[in-house]
Amino acid sequence: MDSLVVLVLCLSCLLLLSLWRQSSGRGKLPPGPTPLPVIGNILQIGIKDISKSLTNLSKVYGPVFTLYFGLKPIVVLHGYEAVKEALIDLGEEFSGRGIFPLAERANRGFGIVFSNGKKWKEIRRFSLMTLRNFGMGKRSIEDRVQEEARCLVEELRKTKASPCDPTFILGCAPCNVICSIIFHKRFDYKDQQFLNLMEKLNENIKILSSPWIQICNNFSPIIDYFPGTHNKLLKNVAFMKSYILEKVKEHQESMDMNNPQDFIDCFLMKMEKEKHNQPSEFTIESLENTAVDLFGAGTETTSTTLRYALLLLLKHPEVTAKVQEEIERVIGRNRSPCMQDRSHMPYTDAVVHEVQRYIDLLPTSLPHAVTCDIKFRNYLIPKGTTILISLTSVLHDNKEFPNPEMFDPHHFLDEGGNFKKSKYFMPFSAGKRICVGEALAGMELFLFLTSILQNFNLKSLVDPKNLDTTPVVNGFASVPPFYQLCFIPV
C-alpha cells in the first residue's frame, strides 16, 4: 500500500510540474494548442506526416506557434517570411542545433551535424575549407563525379535492359564520391566492405524516417530501456565508426604531411598542428563522427533524390523527352556531361530543381535551437528552445509555385524558357546551418541524371499514369515507394 501511495504522489508531482512548466512558459512563447500533461501535443500531431499537421496548425495559430513534445516546448516556423527572418536575418541567433537524443547517444555531441557552439563552428569551418581545397564546386571533385558517372552508366548497362530496382546502384554512385573525398578511394560496386557500408546507410535513412524515431526523440528514456529499431540505428553508426577508425589508422601509418590526399589526411594534419593548443576540438573521436556525418549527409540524401527523380521522369515521359532533346543538342553522344553545360541547359536545370522542390526530401529539416534569449515577432523565446522549420511550407508555397503539388519544371523557367532562380528554393535548409555539401549534391544530381539520360531511355513496367509517387515514409525524410524500371541503351 505504501508503495502505491508513493507512486501516486510521484505521478501527481510530475503532472503538477508539467502543468507549471507549460503555464509559466506560455506567456512568453508564441500561441499554440493546449498541451496535455506529460505528453504535450503529441496526440494532435500525425507522426506519419508531421508536415501536414504543421500546415493545419498554422492555419489556426499563424506562421509562428508553439507545440509541446512531452514536456519540451518547440517553436514552429511556417512559411517563407518566418523562416527567412529566423535563419537568414537572425542567422546567428537561430544557428543552434536542437535536442536530438538519439544523435546524442550516437555521437556524444561530436561531428558537424549535431554539434553546437565553438566545437560546431570550428569543425564546420575546417570541413568547408577542406572540401573547397579539394575542389568542391571546382574541377578536381567534378572529375571524381564524372568518373563515377561513367562507372554508374557501365553498371546500368550490365542490367541488359531487364527490369531492376535502382535503389542499390543509385546509392553506390554518391557513396563512392564521398569515399573518394574521405578515403581517396572508390570501391567496386561488388566489394563486400562497400556493400556493408551501403547497407547500413540505407537502413539508417529508413529507420530515421519512421514514426518510432519521432517518439524516441521526444521521450528519450525509451532509447535506453525499450527495444526497437533505434538500437539497430545505433549499432549501424557504431559499425561505421569502427570502419572509419580502421581507415584512420591506415592513414596514420602512411600519411605524407607534405601531400595530403583526402579529408582524413587533412584532419590528422590539423590534429598535429593543434596538439599544443589544448583542449582542441580536433580529436580522433571528432574525426570519426565528422566522417560519419559526411557519409550520412552525402550519400543517402543524394541517392534518395536520384531514385525519386527517375520515378518522376517515368511518370512524366514528356519531361524526359525534353531533357534528352536538350542533352542531344548541347552535349551530344561523344563526350561526358560537365558542369559548364548546365548554363546552356535551362530546361534540365529546371527539372533538377523541380525534383528537389517537389519531393521535399527533408520536410522539417533537422531541429534548430536559439543560442540566446531572443525577441522574435513580439515573442520571447528562451535560450536553448528547439525550433522546428517547415521546409515544406517554403518549397510548396502556392504563391511562389502555382499548383505546388504538381510536378512542373516551369516553376523554374521564365516566359522565355530561361532558368529562373527562386529564393524559396531551400531543399538544403538556409542560413548558417545550410548543408555543407550543397554544391557537391547539386553537381552530382546534374551529372548523374544527364549521364543516365544521355545513355538510356527509361521504360516503366506499368502505365506511367498508374505510377504512385507518394512517399512511403514522410517523417525525417521523404522516401519514394518501391518501383522497377528498364534502362534501355540509346
Rank of each mutant, 00 (worst) to 15 (best):
H368P: 01
E328S: 14
E154R: 09
M269R: 15
V352W: 03
G442Y: 05
N196G: 10
E142S: 04
I50P: 11
K206E: 15
I112L: 11
E203C: 06
R139S: 12
F487C: 02
L366V: 12
Q356L: 13
Q193L: 09
A173G: 08
V83E: 01
C172T: 04
S23V: 08
R186T: 04
P211K: 08
G96A: 15
L314Q: 02
M406T: 14
S209W: 05
L156I: 14
I452R: 01
Q22E: 14
V113A: 15
Y243H: 06
E122I: 08
I205Q: 09
L9I: 07
G70K: 01
G137L: 12
D341K: 02
L366N: 02
V330R: 08
V64I: 11
I45S: 05
H410N: 12
G332P: 02
L440G: 00
I207E: 04
R21L: 13
Y424G: 06
V330Y: 07
G475A: 09
D468C: 09
V145M: 03
I182V: 14
G117P: 06
C164R: 05
N259C: 10
N41L: 00
H316G: 01
E122K: 15
P382N: 04
I389L: 09
D191C: 07
P221M: 09
L287S: 01
I488F: 05
K383Q: 07
P471Q: 03
P73N: 02
K421V: 14
A173V: 04
E154F: 05
S53C: 10
Q193V: 14
F94V: 06
V370M: 07
F226S: 07
G135C: 11
L485M: 09
F69G: 06
Y61H: 12
E92W: 09
E272P: 08
G298P: 03
S451V: 07
L71C: 13
H410L: 06
V60F: 05
E274M: 09
S58G: 07
L234P: 04
D49Q: 05
H410G: 12
F134G: 15
L311A: 04
K432S: 15
L156A: 02
L234S: 13
D49T: 05
L11Y: 04
K84G: 06
G416K: 12
N418C: 12
E81S: 08
L71M: 10
T301D: 04
G91T: 08
F456M: 02
V177R: 01
K399V: 14
Y80V: 05
P404H: 06
G298S: 06
M136S: 12
L447R: 01
S422R: 06
G384A: 04
K247V: 10
E415S: 09
I215R: 03
F194S: 02
K190C: 06
T130G: 08
M269Y: 09
S254E: 09
L170E: 01
N204M: 07
L15T: 13
Q356A: 07
L195K: 15
Q324G: 05
L311H: 02
I327S: 01
T167K: 10
N277G: 13
E155G: 03
S58V: 04
F126E: 02
V292I: 12
R186G: 02
R124F: 03
E326A: 01
E203Q: 14
N334Y: 12
M136Y: 15
F65W: 05
I205S: 14
L313H: 00
R333S: 15
Y80K: 06
N466G: 10
D408G: 03
S242L: 04
N202W: 09
S254W: 07
F65S: 03
L294D: 01
P402Y: 06
N176I: 01
M426D: 15
F126W: 13
L313M: 12
K275V: 09
V113Q: 15
G70L: 04
H411F: 02
N133H: 09
I327E: 00
V248I: 06
Y379W: 08
C486Y: 09
R105L: 02
L36N: 05
N202M: 07
D191S: 07
N418G: 06
M339G: 06
L294Q: 00
I389M: 12
P481T: 03
D463L: 09
G135A: 12
I213A: 13
L234W: 06
Y68E: 03
P31R: 08
Y358V: 07
S343V: 13
I374Y: 06
K200H: 10
R342H: 05
R329C: 12
C266A: 15
R377G: 07
Y347E: 02
F446G: 00
A430L: 06
G332I: 02
E438G: 07
S3D: 11
P37A: 04
C10I: 14
D224L: 07
N202K: 07
M406R: 10
Y243L: 15
G417N: 10
P337A: 09
V436E: 03
S429W: 03
G442P: 06
A173Q: 00
Q324R: 11
N204R: 04
I178P: 01
M257V: 14
L314M: 11
K118I: 13
Y61Q: 02
G417S: 09
G27E: 08
P63R: 03
T385D: 00
C13G: 10
S95C: 07
G442F: 06
Y61F: 10
V8M: 15
K118Y: 11
K185M: 06
T469S: 05
I88M: 14
N398Y: 12
T301Q: 08
C435R: 02
N56D: 15
V370P: 05
S280C: 10
S162Y: 07
G111P: 10
F448E: 00
V76F: 08
G91A: 11
T302L: 11
F267V: 03
L67F: 10
M339A: 12
H368F: 12
C13D: 00
Q214R: 11
L453E: 01
H368Q: 06
K270Q: 11
L11N: 03
R307P: 02
P367Y: 06
Y225R: 09
Y483C: 02
F425R: 04
I264N: 01
Q324C: 09
I207W: 08
I374T: 13
L29F: 07
C13E: 01
G96L: 14
G135H: 14
K273S: 14
F194G: 03
N474C: 15
H230D: 03
K423W: 07
S286Q: 15
S58I: 02
T159L: 13
K185V: 04
P174E: 10
R357D: 01
